[in-house]
Design a protein around this nucleic acid. Structure first.
Lengths: 296, 296
DNA sequence: CTAAATCATCGACAACATCGATATAACGGC
DNA sequence: GCCGTTATATCGATGTTGTCGATGATTTAG
């Protein structure tokens, strides 16, 4: 393989016309360039130069090689610049996987902060539930993810999840219901019909009800937090939804009552261990910040 | 500037998936690849790789850089192959400057020999008189030249001329002339009108006549050896033409008589001193051969 | 839990890029 | 024609670094 430093010497010679000038341009000593040119000829077994007077001239072969070399050096410089831009957060694209209610609440705020802080950084948003998101991280389809986990849940393998927010759970009931005073006792709804929120929340709902001493009668199920609230508003049952889902959409005909001690953890999840690319760290930072600011 | 060897390691890693396999593919030891990858990350200040299990994975930045690197390495290989092809005479283009009568006689024969010997070598023919040809060599517009020189003429500066043929001069007279016996005595035409051949030959003609004891009365002049012969055939005068010109074109209505001891040297002329590019040497060889074979 | 596989690290050696000093050659002016 | 200037080539010395073998750390598979 042709040594690029020697090519560089040849290109500089072609541009400047003399070895000394080429050396100056490359910040080298004159013997260094002389040496590289000689080695380039020996190593390729070609005649690239011809002495003329006290200078040098490129042969047709030398000319052609120098032209190719110029192109190659330009590509190298381009690749380096591209990488530097990405490293210094002036460019790049980060693929973020997020679950629906976060995509509608935290992500827009994070994007706003990101464009303000790093205008060159782009963000591709992919909606995905936590297990799917972890799989995408492992597969390299996403670079970072927003996930959630219920208490006691082990985090998926191979990824690093950092909790950035405690997302309280609320009992959601028809607007006609009297909220009453003090904390909610789920047992009060033991005989009501239930709607499950997202699919993963079903097991958490069962655990909460079991702790309250009953088993809920589940009449309807949907992943869609808008649809679920509509069902509740129509008086078809009650449900439990996390705060983020209620912040994303709030049906005016439902009331929400905090369920004491019930919450899910919102996590910023990345693949493998640090260090991560600067762009990923930057996105993680804005996500953490935005999630922290929503503690209230 | 990014070191190409490190890039090569990254590309090989991307292709093979593991450092060990990449090392094997590049005929290196495994620590060498490990080292190059680490240095590449340090030197560019980027995160290009991520440990996963007992293997490595490329980050998006690493992926992009590897793709660029693949392209760059391909270009390098292409440039090298191109150069090798030229060096081994499988390709290339040589620009040959030749004076008209040689272009019509020696050059076609040389081209025939060249295509037989090196089918990949191409030849660009440029018609040029010797001084012009030498200038083209100096200017880099031609790579090799066929020139001629009259006895005692110094060869132009900066070029190397090798005589490959003695080209005898002939007195050319109208066909009606009785050739007579024995060598020609130019003095016999002292009172005839003269036509000069090519422009450069005028001084040689004057010298020959002067040696014969008279000064020719020059009625017409032309560079064109076909036109000159027409003039002579029409009985407008006599002239002196070199053998090559007569071989290129022979007007049936003229007779030619050798002028004893009068000749020009046909030369293969190159720029500067050896070594010359292999393609130039190859063209010089066929020219020399063809010119030598025409000695008769 | 053991064995195989993989990458990282370390120390050592050889190769080589680079430089300063100097030799050699060519141009320009007087 | 001689001499200062301007080129490149060469040489010896030195510091850097590419490369390897051996070894350690970690993970996967059986």
């Amino acid at each position: 393989m042709i040594d690029v430093r020697r090519l560089e010497a040849l290109v500089a010679l072609r541009r400047t016309g003399t070895v000394s000038a080429a050396a100056a341009q490359l910040h080298y000593g004159q013997p260094t360039i002389s040496h590289h040119l000689r080695r380039l000829e020996v190593e390729t077994g070609s005649v690239l130069l011809q002495r003329v007077g006290r200078g040098l001239r490129l042969t047709p072969d030398g000319e052609r090689l120098a032209r190719r070399g110029e192109e190659i050096l330009a590509l190298l410089a381009r690749a380096e610049a591209e990488l530097t831009a990405s490293t210094s957060l002036q460019a790049g694209q980060v693929r973020l996987a997020a679950f629906p209610s976060a995509a509608a609440t935290l992500v827009p705020a994070a994007v706003a902060l990101l464009v303000e802080r790093h205008p060159g950084l782009g963000l591709d948003l992919i909606e995905a539930e936590p297990p799917e998101a972890a799989a995408m991280l492992r597969a390299g389809t996403a670079d970072i993810a927003l996930t959630f986990a219920y208490p006691g849940q082990a985090e998926p393998d191979g990824v690093t999840a950092v909790t950035v927010h405690e997302d309280a759970l609320y009992l959601v009931a028809p607007g006609s219901l009297d909220p009453g005073a003090g904390p909610v006792d789920l047992a009060r709804f033991a005989d009501t019909r239930w709607v499950t929120g997202c699919e993963r929340c079903r097991s958490e709902l069962l655990a909460l009800c079991s702790k309250a001493g009953f088993e809920p009668r589940i009449a309807y199920a949907s992943d869609d937090y808008v649809a679920v609230q509509s069902l509740v508003a129509s008086g078809l049952g009650v449900t439990v939804l996390p705060g983020l889902a209620l912040r994303a959409h709030r049906n005016p005909d439902v009331v929400r009552l905090p369920v004491p001690g019930a919450a899910r953890r919102i996590q910023v999840t990345t693949y493998g261990a640090p260090p991560h690319p600067a762009s990923v760290d930057a996105v993680a930072a804005v996500l953490t910040e935005v999630a922290g600011a929503s503690e209230s």
